[in-house]
Design a protein around this nucleic acid. Structure first.
Lengths: 348, 348
DNA sequence: ATGAAAGCGCTAACAT
DNA sequence: ATGTTAGCGCTTTCAT
């Protein structure tokens, strides 16, 4: 591929002049500029971003590491992040950790090696991006959706705690006294917050702890299935299930359908977040919606601010932003059943 | 951040030796290697990928441009692609075109500028990556899911045509004689193939063309809604709707629910592809599933082959791979209703 | 086995 | 307004 030198040769101009002409810098005569542009066009010149990045020591790319590429919680945010960054000329280096802290750390390291100008990160555990903070204390990092224990990073999260509480309150309002929560991995900040919200609400509403079991596992659909079976078997008086992620909600519905347990007739079900399909699920799911678009947008802005700010009079104190969501009530939650579940449900 | 020179100074060795030691090249004494490694560790050295990429003229990154970050058709493939490439040390530069050919072209150009080693691309129109093919006739490109008119690229697609036909056949087997298809934008290869499959099957099964309307629009849920209304209004005898994308299927269900049209009692509905939620939709959707994981895996392999092959004895002829899918019948399709739809459906 | 030096393509500081 | 030059950090000959 042709380079600046080729254009310089072609036009008989100097290297510097060509560079300035192409980059739109001042102090280039219009005639020269036209000549350069024309030559570049003719030769099919494409400037080499790597060389520029090396020289300017900024790559105009930012890394994004998320745990799941097929989950709207992350991809919705990623989509917006991508949009916002693109308008400023930044490209996204996307990586997927599959929820594994080791992979996560390795990916982060590879991003540093590629000299990204900033990183958006959904941590897979309490250590988050600690390893790269050690190497580079000033690289802009924003945590999205989940938080690590790092205190030197910006963060954007949803009000998971409040959302959980609203779900419980809604259920209690309908008359439920025995509500089960299916939770995710205890090492994640989202799990912790959602769990706390659940337990606080239970306490406040004077629901007995033993009537409101909490099962923690993974964020998968399969865990939703297993947990549902356990609830049915070990807590037969539960009348409502709160599945604290959309994947788990899917597993819950699947299992309940399979066993012939009617929703909401025999069992109320609430989810979390609001993927489009909740609206056409059988039945449509009650849930707590988070403004993912706004969250992604905010993450992008925080990152860009840090990247572009003159490092001199910086704003060193990390900013944490929490977004409120809203309860959406649909047909999957109703008054509790009055009779016990048919005893044959678990022995088909 | 520290660089090779710092390590050289620290250890008293030459630049070249340090480089070789770090890169694991031969001809370095074990003692020296140890000393270098140790110094690198101590200084917190992180090699600069940009400089290496510039020097070796390969960036170890590949670009991926897809039209929608919130659609499993693309993200499922992207997830696998990312996995496979990561094992070979390649990073993914992810871009989202939002289905706009201009954005698409601009993004492709920016990837070339970043000197990616290859590109996976879901084109937004017949021109695809033509603009960059002109500049660089040998850059490895694989088209995923959709195809452009370019003949100098590899491609991985699903058997859209056959899938469409299978849907129609299934519906006809149930007794439907008037089936409506909601199609996407006519400029896309997927739309063309799905439409052809539909029309061929109709012809073969001797369904009258005027009984089987085909409405083309966009791939959005909102188009699914609008098309449903039109079908109900303008083709009241239709007893089955084939929504040829999952987004559209969502719109169809939403509208049918809203109008109180029973599925499958009053109207059978079939989708395309098989996002997880189809299984828990109200009701679970009949569809044609494509092996997206395998497709993404194949795309990655084709790309890697082209990237790593010695450009000398290349395999210049482009390869196109088409994957078969399978029909999944669920509760959303049943025998056609026997009585006309309640006339009040559209005037609530 | 190690060191010295050239150069990847670009930008920016300095001359003119 | 334009030309010249010195690197950015690395790999890779080519000497030693």
């Amino acid at each position: 591929m042709p380079n600046l030198k080729d254009i310089a040769k072609e036009t008989g101009l100097g290297l510097g002049t060509v560079s300035r002409a192409l980059s739109g810098a001042p102090r280039v005569s219009p005639a020269t500029r036209r000549k350069v542009m024309e030559a570049a066009q003719r030769l099919g010149y494409q400037s080499n971003g790597l060389a520029r990045a090396l020289r300017q020591s900024q790559s105009h790319s930012v890394g994004l590491v998320i745990p799941d590429l097929e989950n709207e919680f992350y991809t919705s945010g990623a989509a917006i992040l991508q949009d916002v960054l693109a308008t400023q000329g930044y490209r996204l280096l996307l990586c997927c950790s599959n929820g594994d802290p080791e992979t996560d750390a390795a990916l982060l390291m590879s991003l540093v090696e590629r000299r990204v100008d900033g990183i958006a990160h959904t941590p897979c555990g309490p250590d988050g991006a600690r390893s790269i903070r050690r190497l580079n204390p000033t690289l802009p990092i924003v945590e999205y959706a989940r938080r690590s224990e790092l205190d030197s990073v910006d963060s954007v999260t949803g009000d998971e705690r409040g959302g959980s509480a609203e779900i419980v309150e809604h259920l209690a309002r309908l008359g439920h006294r025995s509500i089960a929560m299916i939770a995710g991995p205890p090492a994640l900040s989202t799990t912790v917050a959602r769990t706390e919200g659940f337990e606080e609400a239970c306490r406040r509403l004077r629901l007995r702890k033993r009537d409101c079991p909490r099962l923690s596992g993974t964020y998968d659909a399969s865990w939703g299935e297993e947990a549902t079976l356990r609830i049915l078997r070990e807590h037969p008086d539960v009348t409502a299930i709160y599945a604290s992620s959309s994947r788990m909600a899917l597993g819950v519905l699947r299992t309940l359908h399979r066993l012939g347990v009617g929703v909401p007739g025999d069992m109320s079900v609430a989810g979390f977040l609001n993927p489009l399909w909740y609206e056409v699920a059988g039945p449509p799911l009650t849930t707590y919606e988070l403004p993912l678009k706004d969250m992604g947008d905010m993450a992008a802005r925080l990152l860009l601010q840090r990247i572009t700010e003159t490092t001199g009079d910086a704003l060193p104190e990390p900013r944490t932003v929490r977004f409120e969501g809203r309860l959406i009530t649909r047909e999957s939650t109703a008054r509790p059943r009055t009779a016990p579940l048919a005893s044959g449900v678990l022995t088909p």
